[in-house]
Design a protein around this nucleic acid. Sequence first.
DNA 1: GTATATGCAAAGGGTTTGCACGGTT
DNA 2: AACCGTGCAAACCCTTTGCATATAC
Lengths: 152, 152
Amino acid sequence: MNQKTEAWDRRLRSAGFRITPQRQLVLEAVTTLRHSTPEDILLEVQQTASGVNLSTVYRTLEVLEQVGLVTHAHIDHGSPTYHVVEEAPHIHLVCSRCQAVESVESDDFEKFSSKLESQKGFVVNIAHVALHGLCKNCADGRTLIIDNEFDI
Amino acid sequence: MNQKTEAWDRRLRSAGFRITPQRQLVLEAVTTLRHSTPEDILLEVQQTASGVNLSTVYRTLEVLEQVGLVTHAHIDHGSPTYHVVEEAPHIHLVCSRCQAVESVESDDFEKFSSKLESQKGFVVNIAHVALHGLCKNCADGRTLIIDNEFDI
DNA sequence: GTATATGCAAAGGGTTTGCACGGTT
DNA sequence: AACCGTGCAAACCCTTTGCATATAC
């Protein structure tokens, strides 16, 4: 974890940003929570002695995203969810019924997206992909999602 | 176009909703604009004599989505974009740089998603898919999107 | 010491809601 | 006539911004 922290710091510093307790706290929270909204992160960091202001959370996430340490995806209708940029790229599966978020490796998706690239010239930002639907539990045998069936 | 209108009306009526000028106007606007935010729709319908209130636009879109006449996808960080449910299912490609929205048929995507279904049990709502990245023009030879390269 | 980051509070955008009125059935 | 739908305004998120203060470098 310490090694990770050092890498984070280097990344920030090399981009000309300063290391602050708030930035470290937010980064730890994003790591711990795995998929979290700004509000989630606020609650997490507020459990520490120092605490961080909500606007600082927003500004920090912006910075962390700029330097490539975190990304976000639009998981539901509300706030975006942030997560650390990992070694293994993955895409998000979001259940429209139970709101569960699942990460799956993107290998198969990449086959599709590279085809898209060669055919249409469109280059997909894989880390940003969030697919909505029903998770295994909630699907329960269905094979087709009717658009208006859930509040999605 | 008249035939379409009748089908719309039937759909609404059979679901127990009433036919109102506002609902017809919104539906026409969504059709005309192809990919539009509530605000876009408001501007479009305000060009008519009657006009429609913004909150009615929202409520109408909710109804139209419930009865399966329109869907929405989360195209950018802001408002969702609505479009009519078409015969040919398609997914959306959204350029992070120029904001252009492209529709492509979902055949290839479905190959991926059915694999996802058999392997993970996750059933993707295809109409809701919006992939972010760079369009042909903006990609301009790139083959990898760095997450923080654009404000996405 | 200087430039950057933070906290606070206020403003901003998008969306939802309560209520009285108007229109559809 | 009864009920549903609309307009209006207020309320409600979530996010951004301005400014004075604090802090990293």
